[in-house]
Design a binder for these strands. Sequence first.
DNA 1: AGAGGTTCTCGGGCGC
DNA 2: TGCGCCCGAGAACCTC
Length: 275
Amino acid sequence: MPELPEVETVRRTLEVLAVGKEIDHVSVFWPKMIKRPNEVEQFNDALRGQTIKEIGRRGKFLIFYTEDYSLVSHLRMEGKYGLFDADEPVEKHTHVIFHFTDGKELRYKDVRKFGTMHLYGKGTEFDTQPLADLGPEPFSEDFSVEWLSDKLKKTNRKIKPALLDQKILVGLGNIYVDEALFRAKIHPERIANSLSPEEEAVLYKEIVSTLSEAVEKGGSTIRSYVNSQGQIGMFQLQLYVYGCKNEPCKVCGTLLEKTVVGGRGTHYCPSCQNL
DNA sequence: AGAGGTTCTCGGGCGC
DNA sequence: TGCGCCCGAGAACCTC
């Protein structure tokens, strides 16, 4: 489901719903998703009595800050949060419930069970996986053409898998990488270190503008994504190639194609994006 | 029936 | 030979 624009939208909506709430206790129905600490018991014990102070984001990870802890949550493909009254029926595929002292509950639902949660002592969350080693945020000054160029020069991979590597930059996923490459007129199978300086500059610009426009539109809803208030995104209406196989290219009219690159379904225009 | 918005682990291949 | 890096494949799970 979520790439940076969706996660940022979830963060913003979640902030309104959950900040200031005190956790009475936590229920975990699928212990495998709690990656740290090792025992779910310790996870529950730690969070009892904590108040959610702030909700942050690093790449596609959400971070819930309490007085003493940082809860790092990744939605992977289908993870969703929602606030409910305690007496509302629990929906199928709900795996974690944070019961608040005011009678509300924050529920985490995830059909495919790929999502993860890591709990760290506050301030130590960036020292180890999964947050250590992440590349720069696309909207920060740390992400520059120079940085991108330097990283791309050092790899023999195809450009698409390189851009999906969260060590190079965070936030791009399968939708936005296809869109950014289309907008930059770069074929997804180009070798990363073969891009010209001009191509690198355009690619840099299109990565940032694609992601920021998508944040403005509240992300893209393809199949199932909704934010924490149950609202869908609107950026799917502005997609040029993702999910548009066999439709005419909006720029040149050529029929768009879909292949597999790096194991991922890949959408592109065979005319605008040359190898 | 197979693919789906993600990322981790594993093992092969290559270069010192 | 051995080690380390890089990269691609497969796995984790459930729905339609």
